[in-house]
């Protein structure tokens, strides 16, 4: 008998896919779905091109592909090169937000042996333009963040320039892992994995992905 997926987790994944298919701060839904498709292809490709190849000759899609497949190879030099070529830093942040909204539902379904999720139809409308009230350069991230910068952890401020992307990421984190409030308790768990078992799974996948952070 197949166990049901927790309702809060299923809902967080559904909302994340809907988030991708809705207008963002700078990109409309059709473009966001194109970026998500590139990320999906990058994450699932059986024989992907090497990291330095830009398979789409389209900067936004190429960033999404590389981030989905080879995140650990992305350097500050490459980020600056893409920005110099004409991408706005906040478009880069939005692409990161789309990739991190796309990969978790895919990764979970593949890991659990369930059907891969499909995106809902795109929502019509122009980009909504919602950005942090004030932006600031950061020393703990390449990308601009909500001011004041560097007063919290780098992963916490990472997407703060675009509140919609930030909200989606932390909604996913609360359902997949734990909320900020639960994180401060080293013994908190859901009744299945103990907290050390959760951290073991987290640590090994991060090591496999060659993520120093």
């Amino acid at each position: 008998m197949t166990s049901a997926i927790r309702a809060d987790l299923a809902e967080a994944h559904r909302q994340s896919l809907q988030h991708v298919a809705s207008p963002g701060a700078r990109l409309d839904a059709e473009r966001r779905l194109q970026i998500a498709a590139a990320a999906t292809q990058g994450y699932l490709a059986a024989e992907p091109p090497p990291p330095w190849v830009r398979p789409f000759a389209d900067p936004a899609l190429d960033v999404a592909f590389r981030l989905a497949r080879y995140a650990g190879t992305i350097t500050q030099e490459w980020y600056e090169q893409v920005i110099t070529e004409g991408m706005h830093p906040l478009e880069w942040v939005e692409i990161v937000g789309i990739v991190v909204a796309t990969v978790p539902p895919l990764a979970f379904a593949r890991a659990a042996g369930r059907a891969l999720p499909e995106f809902p139809p795109s929502v019509a409308g122009q980009p909504h333009g919602r950005e942090a009230a004030e932006l600031a350069p950061a020393t703990l991230n390449w990308v601009p963040v909500a001011a004041p910068a560097d007063t919290t952890a780098s992963v916490v401020q990472a997407l703060s320039a675009l509140p919609g992307e930030w909200d989606n990421m932390w909604r996913l984190a609360a359902a997949q892992y734990m909320s900020d409030a639960q994180m401060v308790d080293p013994l908190w768990n859901r009744g299945t994995l103990s907290r050390p078992q959760m951290e073991l799974a987290a640590g090994r996948i991060s090591r496999v992905r060659e993520c120093f952070f």
Partner: peptide
């Protein structure tokens, strides 16, 4: 299976967090 599903969710979360960190150049103080 419930244990496996929660383990899959944790791994999915760090498939996300690694990309947040590496996509935004996150570093330690």
């Amino acid at each position: 299976e419930a244990f496996m599903l929660d383990a899959a969710a944790v791994v999915a979360n760090f498939e996300m967090m690694t990309r947040v960190a590496d996509g935004t150049g996150a570093r330690f103080p």
